[in-house]
Write a protein that binds this DNA or RNA. Sequence first.
DNA 1: CGGTCTATTGAAGGCGATCAACATTCGTGG
DNA 2: CCACGAATGTTGATCGCCTTCAATAGACCG
Lengths: 268, 268
Amino acid sequence: MALTWVSEHNGHMLSQSAMSSAPPTHPLLARLQHYVQFADDERASLEALAAGPVITVRQRRDLAREGDKARGVNLILDGWAFRYKTLEDGRRQIIAFLLPGDLCDVHGYIHRELDHSTGAVTPVRYVEIPRERIEALVALGPRVAQALWWDASVSASIQREWTVNLGQRDALERLSHLLCELVHRLRAVGLADDNRCDIPLTQTDLAEATGMTPVHVNRMVQELRARGLIRWKGRAFEALDLDRLCNVAMFNPAYLHLDREGRHLDAT
Amino acid sequence: MALTWVSEHNGHMLSQSAMSSAPPTHPLLARLQHYVQFADDERASLEALAAGPVITVRQRRDLAREGDKARGVNLILDGWAFRYKTLEDGRRQIIAFLLPGDLCDVHGYIHRELDHSTGAVTPVRYVEIPRERIEALVALGPRVAQALWWDASVSASIQREWTVNLGQRDALERLSHLLCELVHRLRAVGLADDNRCDIPLTQTDLAEATGMTPVHVNRMVQELRARGLIRWKGRAFEALDLDRLCNVAMFNPAYLHLDREGRHLDAT
DNA sequence: CGGTCTATTGAAGGCGATCAACATTCGTGG
DNA sequence: CCACGAATGTTGATCGCCTTCAATAGACCG
């Protein structure tokens, strides 16, 4: 139990303080700071997003279902979730993984109904951010507004990369690529310690995300183990040789846009 | 030559006026009106977007390459293009098709470099819309602003559906689904007459979009022909039985969000 | 009219699916 | 704390969708 994923009992601030030496922030802010440095008031407003009434969902339950009426934007505080779509005959595809700090899409602003579902992997704590709240943030100035754009834009970029992954890479490459992405994204929110992190996904989850069968996922995991690239027991994942894993996957982290592209907007 | 795709010689207005009885508009406006009804001044401003200096790209040339410095948002006036990404070893995945009326993503606003390329299928005419132009549009009020959000949101939704397509559907379903999507999107901009339209894609293009080999695309096309679902000769495509084609593909048009979701915002 | 691009067809092989056990871990309640 | 059942992970054997390779036909263009 010691190093497992944060549960409902210990909040996200706990897991944060263990990871980073910077002043503890919630994971969205950690991520946005990869784009731009905020002024104090901006940081405070972003910080305050996590203050709203927190909703908790039990593991393996849905946060929202296809066809539901869309409410505001959701901010994941801790836990893992995924977006998925189901075909008429029951086949299911995981479309995206949602990690702490992820804003679930702006969809809710525009569309009346969700065209996909969201399911919790672990227990998930999140807040619903009403639209006025976002508008108030944007009103703080271009720095925050563009940071939110950056966030939405990165999500779109990830979705494009998933398209490439499913269309062009073979099974081993596909799995490796997903793992590389997760490690990089977890690092961005302070949830990966070097090359080690908790990945609470089952092999069935991985199968639904990579478009293969659970059986074949298992074989690919073992292949990666046999090549000395990863160690993975329960939730405890470690990339023993991340460089080689990235090579296998032909992983190019550029699409995650984690290189402070908004530097020119930095607060002094 | 009579019914082939609009070329550089006959502008887009020509092709428009042939399709719809409504007052001729450019294809972006046609599409946005699936979301909301605009007031006259809004319509005029959107109309004026197409007035800027038109850039023409020859067929099978790139509009932009991965790594290029991002400029403004591009609006396709006529012709077909696609976004694609290339792996180190040369494999290529088409990520999205860009049809007349499509705004090429807002990417340019935020990111310094493109993380993907855009290639022209046919000769393409487009305009670069500078950011101030967009800001001026948004300043017209919430109707236009939300329509632009809707547009971006639909693009994201399409990208999610492509993820499902590549991950879960088999070759025949995948191809059918792509064809259904194209027919529906072409209709939305007045470029499909009932179940007939020009599709200027080669089977190699389809292969790169669906993650299969050109050889197998050919076999699937023939399968659809044999089942009496489609007729396709050169660019002239016809869905002989669109309902059955949609069934084969398990195509649900909801993700295209073409049902006037912004109705409540309509100008009187 | 020759050259290139695209479509088409055939044959063989492989990647990943499918089916079927079995092992192991985990959650839960007795 | 143990016992039970369910969920997850693992392994093997077989099958088939799709790839690969190769050759030909047709379409289009300069």
